[in-house]
């Protein structure tokens, strides 16, 4: 039984390490800030998620698991905030993304006409 848990946890830890490596390689290979952000968010979510899941299995049901879960939640809540702040700051600084296709001018559908209305605040 404990062998199975051990195997599963090591598999998860190795999967996490793999995604971290992939994210790091991506950060070096990709052409501009925006695409590198995608790669960094792979590290933040997939890498940290799998790694901590493996560590939680190692820790068993205890306070340590709770702390791991809390760090993971911290990552999952602050990750997008940082990424969004970074992307928006880069956009405002007028750094042009390398684009294959720009679909910002596409017509919005029926809901789009009502954009900005019907919103309570």
């Amino acid at each position: 039984m404990s062998l199975i848990v051990d195997l599963a946890s090591w598999a998860l830890i190795l999967a996490g390490s793999f995604f971290i490596m992939a994210g790091a390689i991506g950060m070096l290979r990709l052409p501009d800030v925006y695409t590198r952000m995608h790669s960094a968010s792979v590290i933040d979510t997939m890498g940290a998620g799998f790694l901590f899941a493996g560590l939680m299995l190692q820790a068993g049901f205890s306070q340590v698991t709770l702390k791991l879960l809390f760090i993971l939640l911290l990552f999952f809540f602050t990750g997008p905030v940082i990424t969004h702040a970074l992307a928006q700051a880069a956009m405002i600084a007028k750094i042009k993304p390398e684009l294959d296709e720009d679909r910002r001018d596409r017509p919005l559908d029926a809901n789009g006409a009502a954009a900005g209305e019907g919103r309570q605040s």
């Binding site: 971290i20 994210g23 590198r36 952000m37 590290i43 940290a48 970074l86 600084a93």
Partner: peptide, 21 residues
């Protein structure tokens, strides 16, 4: 650019936490 640096610093921070764990 500045933003590349900030992104890299943030990622290093994340990696530090993972390494610490």
């Amino acid at each position: 650019t500045v933003f590349d640096r900030v992104l890299a610093a943030n990622t290093v921070g994340t990696l530090a936490i993972l390494l610490l764990a």
